[in-house]
Design a protein around this nucleic acid. Sequence first.
DNA 1: ATATCACTTAGAGTTTACTTCAAGTCAATA
DNA 2: TATTGACTTGAAGTAAACTCTAAGTGATAT
Lengths: 122, 122
Amino acid sequence: MQISEVAKEFDLTPDTLRYYEREGLIGPISKGKNGIRNYTDDDIKRIQFVKCMRAAGLEINFLKRYLQLFEGGDKTIKERREILVEQRKILKEKLDAMQEAYDRLNYKIELYDKNILDKNLM
Amino acid sequence: MQISEVAKEFDLTPDTLRYYEREGLIGPISKGKNGIRNYTDDDIKRIQFVKCMRAAGLEINFLKRYLQLFEGGDKTIKERREILVEQRKILKEKLDAMQEAYDRLNYKIELYDKNILDKNLM
DNA sequence: ATATCACTTAGAGTTTACTTCAAGTCAATA
DNA sequence: TATTGACTTGAAGTAAACTCTAAGTGATAT
């Protein structure tokens, strides 16, 4: 699969895919002798994972580190688990904060709908 | 209330509070004749709102716009409601993406716990 | 009285995550 | 054969949201 197809599939740009590779989040992707990248199924799976985690706001640095550990083989399993747990915690806190903001927005919109807004800032 | 107290209360830095004010997310905050800011209860309420929304990732620009509309008085009610609804939608999409990533992290950690990791990338 | 400390300003610098640019290669099509 | 279009590279540029610096003021503690 070529870069533009992968980009389209995941709604990323080719530039972003090359950037992720440069940063070590994916790949290195193997290339034909013309130098053109050819993405394998495993590459695609990883991109899917990266896309999901990035959409949730996990940092490039974490994903980079995770791939490095992965390359390191079985002896990194413990550390890999640890950073997953750490990231889950961070994510949970963000989720809660966002839920709170969501509820608050809902409440505010309700007030607008009921026409009971007065001079309340907030 | 002085800037450092407010900063401590909301776990922000004084720099951030001045920055928010400069950008028009809050204030302008009234100052004593020595030029020192004195935050009122209404200021605090607004900061609480801004903090909540920022923690959820809503953009500075939205908050700025919302304050501008607020200053505009009752004739802006319709537009205010509209942008709240728009932001709620954006927030909902992020929440869903994050929930998905959270579930995925949970699942992965479970696999690590059960020692069934093989060579699976992802 | 002098030093310390919190505050003030305008403006420059930083971080994260892309995004764009310039210059070039290669295969295919008019 | 010439041009079009997708790809390549390294490097510079950008946007958002802070964060820090330098230079200065003014109240309080020694």
